[in-house]
């Protein structure tokens, strides 16, 4: 598909905005519609779009499979780690109320329930984005091996 100049240029123009939108959905999910699941899927779709237009090698240079497959587990680890953290702070598993702190209150640093939700959504986002990208790699890489 890389030989169509219009597709190449439009893709290059769009991808930064898709990535930015994914980050917005991720970090603004507490306030408006959005959250980790959506952000992960949107982030992955930006990578997949790049891969479709410029080829599997190009996207694997940007997002090496070795790192993405670590990301799959890292997200779940962040999620479960938040639960373990709240346990070690004396609360129950995933009881975010114990994360309440009073550091830099004038900067509105997330605290308590907000901080817990933030961390958990981050974990969900990482896992979903990595899994979707990795699934795409698996399908696209199969094709490559099949053709040659």
């Amino acid at each position: 598909m890389s030989r169509f100049p219009i597709i190449r240029i439009i893709t290059k123009l769009l991808i930064p905005y898709i990535l930015l939108f994914a980050l917005y959905v991720q970090f603004h999910g507490d306030y408006g519609p959005g959250g980790g699941f959506q952000a992960g899927v949107i982030f992955a779709s930006a990578l997949i779009l790049y891969g479709l237009v410029f080829g599997l090698e190009a996207i694997q240079r940007v997002a090496p499979p070795r790192i993405i497959e670590k990301g799959m587990a890292l997200g779940v680890l962040v999620y479960a780690g938040t639960g373990v953290l709240t346990m070690s702070l004396g609360g129950q598993f995933l009881d975010y109320s114990v994360l309440e702190h009073h550091v830099l209150t004038q900067w509105h640093v997330p605290s308590g329930q907000h901080l817990g939700i933030f961390l958990v959504e981050l974990g969900v986002g990482i896992t979903v984005a990595s899994v979707m990208t990795m699934i795409f790699y698996a399908f696209a890489g199969r094709k490559h091996a099949h053709d040659t």
């Binding site: 899994v131 699934i135 698996a138």
Partner: peptide, 20 residues
Amino acid sequence: MLTAIVVGIATTALALALVV
């Protein structure tokens, strides 16, 4: 349903992988 959709696409991908 939010979680079900994302789990749904993951299992759909699994089904398609089996088809391949």
